[in-house]
Design a protein around this nucleic acid. Sequence first.
DNA 1: ATGTTTTGTGAAACATGGCTAACTTTTTAA
DNA 2: TTAAAAAGTTAGCCATGTTTCACAAAACAT
Lengths: 129, 129
Amino acid sequence: MALRESGEDYLESIYVLSERQSTVRSIDVAEYLGVTKASVSKAMATLESNGYVEMGKRDVHLTERGLEVARQMWERHCFFVRLLEDAGVSAEVASQEGCHMEHCLSEESFEKLRSMLAREETSNSTTES
Amino acid sequence: MALRESGEDYLESIYVLSERQSTVRSIDVAEYLGVTKASVSKAMATLESNGYVEMGKRDVHLTERGLEVARQMWERHCFFVRLLEDAGVSAEVASQEGCHMEHCLSEESFEKLRSMLAREETSNSTTES
DNA sequence: ATGTTTTGTGAAACATGGCTAACTTTTTAA
DNA sequence: TTAAAAAGTTAGCCATGTTTCACAAAACAT
């Protein structure tokens, strides 16, 4: 079963939270994403049955497979947030909207876009400095 | 009731089709979007009750309100497709993925992003020519 | 140790947005 | 003009992803 946008968001939030704290519980994910704990419970069951997370008695953690997706999403998130902030969008709005943009592109397209914009940035900073 | 992504897609497709042909029917929208005519019928009823379209006996057309959204979506679509193509993404993939990106940003953020990238393009073409 | 609070789960409901199938209405062609 | 084809609608179903509410289990504090 393919991962949907919401599944990617859950994985990403587990990843982000696990960098802040030693263990991640359902309730942490719920608070982070602003959904109910019932929603998390349901989502975790699906993600676990598809091998993206493992649920301990009092924590959830990413499998290799889940970690790969989560890292990728977080990388994209940061990329789009930075892009929007560079454009003059507030941090808060950039974060919200970046959350959606991160799910739109294939890996290949994302890399191409990132490369192009990195080149532009380099050439601009050269001319502007 | 706020417009969702699918609603925006329906409006956009009516807009695009109306530039190609004198009248737009449900079936045209269905073929364009690759959904069934039943789905279009349902969607049109909702869009009409929210004042985005008006349905004649044998055509659908955008209201002022609908046209505004449709134009905006189409503009964004073209922007993102061009951006992706510039990055080296194939026309087909760029069109598919641009379809999703166009729904992610607020008007304000989109304008900021567009302005920034336009500036970069200008400064690059200056340095590169 | 036990009572309270926190966390997690399960069931039922709702909204969205698709689908198919059956039907009606309109258009077209013989 | 009438039969067939095309277009549109309606009803019912499905999947996703939420919610609330009730309950179970775990953690914590006194």
